[in-house]
């Protein structure tokens, strides 16, 4: 049993990302989408929480581009995926948990 978690809120306004990371198992994936993608910027508190977590962490590229966050600002250990990657992640896991 593994879960794909999605987080769509900015980690600087809400604690959804921190809570999600601390509840995700090592076999799980966490995908940051919409305003959640700000959590992928390196050198922040959110980036430290990501590197300490066991789950594999992804970020949606189109939402990064919309917000002017270039890929060279992305923290190590975070993989950028497209909509096709999102679909693939959803298919690979048994369940999807949207942290709203």
């Amino acid at each position: 049993m593994s879960i794909l978690h999605t987080v769509n809120k900015s980690p600087f306004q809400k604690n959804d990302l921190a809570s999600c990371l601390s509840h995700a198992s090592d076999a799980d994936a966490v995908l940051m989408i919409e305003d959640g993608v700000y959590g992928a910027i390196k050198g922040t508190k959110a980036a430290a929480q990501i590197s300490a977590a066991g789950a594999t962490v992804f970020v949606l590229g189109v939402d990064l581009a919309a917000r002017g966050i270039s890929e060279d600002k992305i923290a190590d250990g975070v993989s950028v995926v497209g909509y096709d990657g999102f679909v693939k992640l959803a298919a690979e896991h048994n369940a999807v948990n949207s942290w709203l």
Binding site: G61, V62, D63, A65, A66, R67, G68, I69, S70
Partner: peptide, 10 residues
């Protein structure tokens, strides 16, 4: 205010 915002994908 970030530069190079590109919203085509969303």
């Amino acid at each position: 205010l970030t530069k190079d915002q590109d919203t085509k994908g969303i």
